[in-house]
């Protein structure tokens, strides 16, 4: 049912876009480095570090795993705690 592109085709179509996004990330991190003050310790810089390390992991599902880095934990006992 769905067309399946080759890896070569995906690279041809997406290389420049991926390159641009990596540069955006790099420039954003450079901005953070150049900014005054200490690195905030509110957890977000660590989230960024963990997310970026996942980019270099072997797949699959990097996007899904990175989404979970930026997500609050789910507690299956929430209904008991809320009495709902």
């Amino acid at each position: 049912m769905t067309a399946k592109r080759t890896k070569q085709a995906v690279l041809e179509q997406e290389f420049l876009s991926l390159r641009a996004k990596i540069l955006e990330l790099a420039a954003g991190l450079d901005r953070l480095d150049r900014a005054a003050g200490q690195r905030p310790d509110d957890g977000r810089p660590d989230q960024l570090d963990r997310a970026m390390r996942l980019l270099l992991d072997a797949g699959p599902a990097r996007a899904e795993r990175i989404q979970l880095v930026f997500s609050r934990d789910y507690d299956e006992t929430w209904r008991l705690q809320f009495s709902v």
């Binding site: 989404q67 979970l68 930026f70 997500s71 609050r72 934990d73 789910y74 299956e76 929430w78």
Partner: peptide, 14 residues
């Protein structure tokens, strides 16, 4: 939205 989505979706599905 964002950081609340995973937790909230699981709660909704529950």
């Amino acid at each position: 939205h964002l950081e609340d989505k995973y937790q909230g979706t699981r709660m909704i599905l529950d």
